[in-house]
């Protein structure tokens, strides 16, 4: 039986695939096609189209809506000269640093670390709460925060006995930063829980036997072991935070643009503002900034390894 098979295949002159699944390049290609087609059509195409749109005076309404003109880099000149863009960029960086890198990553790590020393019940409770905040649909989550921070009936004012404090107006950036920490910490917590679970217990034990403090254990054993996780987590969190539109549901960028992070700025320029071409130009700038961030992270990751 097997012999007969072998004989017929021996005559075929193709090279045998050299991977565990026997897929070969062509097989792998076939497996990739459906996903790449979807991604190409609904991700890459819009991205490329954005480049083109960014160089036109395309508008939502009026003459330029029917017949957009190619205007080269004019949009970019306009955006880069716009003080609002620079303020928005600055706010975005604060937002990303505060809620993403510091907030979610750090809090997520601390929670993941602490959960390991909590009794079962408390562990389950905290984990559930953190995860629930993440899983609840964003439109519900943002309404919950609107209710919590409401000027007149908000629970926070009632708890702190500060009636009439309009948190979203007086502290808009702090509000959306804390909101975003609340929403997103779960991902880092999950990721770091999984990472900490994979740190060899023998290494931790031997460092403890050498008398290392918690801090020293973290620095000498845990961090080196989970460097890859830290990097992936920070990269993903940074990109996600950079591009999140949800804070719009809380402050709508206000008051007076005091919490207008880039995605909100784009939305306001493109849809209510009607300048689709300019919106596309800002989108592209944002993509470039993201690219730079990603490259920096990769470089850090590679350097640490050697």
């Amino acid at each position: 039986m097997a012999t007969a098979h072998a004989r017929s295949s021996g005559r075929r002159s193709r090279r045998r695939p050299d991977d565990v699944a026997g897929l070969g390049r062509t097989g792998a290609g076939t497996f990739l096609v459906p996903a790449l087609a979807l991604i190409g059509l609904f991700l890459i195409f819009p991205a490329l189209w954005t480049i083109y749109l960014g160089m036109t005076d395309y508008r939502l309404t009026g003459l330029a809506a029917a017949d957009p003109q190619f205007i080269g880099l004019e949009n970019y000149r306009q955006v880069l000269a716009d003080a609002e863009f620079w303020r928005s960029l600055r706010l975005t960086l604060i937002f990303v640093l505060g809620s993403g890198v510091l907030g979610q990553t750090l809090l997520g790590f601390c929670v993941a670390w602490s959960l390991r020393r909590l009794p079962r019940l408390a562990k389950g409770l905290i984990e559930t709460l953190v995860l629930a905040a993440w899983v609840v649909p964003t439109s519900v989550g943002s309404f919950l925060w609107l209710a919590l921070l409401d000027r007149h009936e908000g629970t926070l004012n009632w708890l702190l006995d500060t009636p009439g404090t309009a948190w979203l107006i007086e502290y808009p950036m702090a509000s959306i930063i804390i909101f975003n920490i609340w929403v997103g910490t779960a991902f880092s917590m999950l990721l770091f829980s999984s990472a900490l679970g994979a740190v060899p217990p023998s290494q931790l034990e031997s460092s403890r036997m050498a008398g290392a403090s918690t801090w020293q254990q973290l620095r000498d054993v845990v961090i080196p072991n989970i460097r890859g996780h830290i990097l992936t987590n920070t990269l993903l969190i940074t990109l996600w935070t950079f591009n999140t539109f949800t804070p719009y549901l809380l402050t709508a960028g206000g008051p007076n643009g005091a919490s207008e992070i880039l995605p909100v700025y784009i939305y306001r320029t493109a849809i209510p503002g009607g300048q689709l071409g300019v919106g596309a130009a800002i989108s592209l700038l944002m993509l470039l900034i993201n690219l730079v961030i990603a490259l920096v992270y990769m470089r850090i990751g590679r350097e640490k390894k050697t």
Binding site: A47, W49, T50, L236, W240, A270, G279, S283, A294
Partner: peptide, 23 residues
């Protein structure tokens, strides 16, 4: 992989609204 990941976080947001709509 990283290119796509990067694109996905950007393009699914506000950036691609207009092209997606047109598409």
């Amino acid at each position: 992989l990283y290119g796509l990941l990067l694109l996905s976080s950007v393009v699914t947001g506000t950036a691609a609204m207009v092209p997606l709509f047109q598409l």
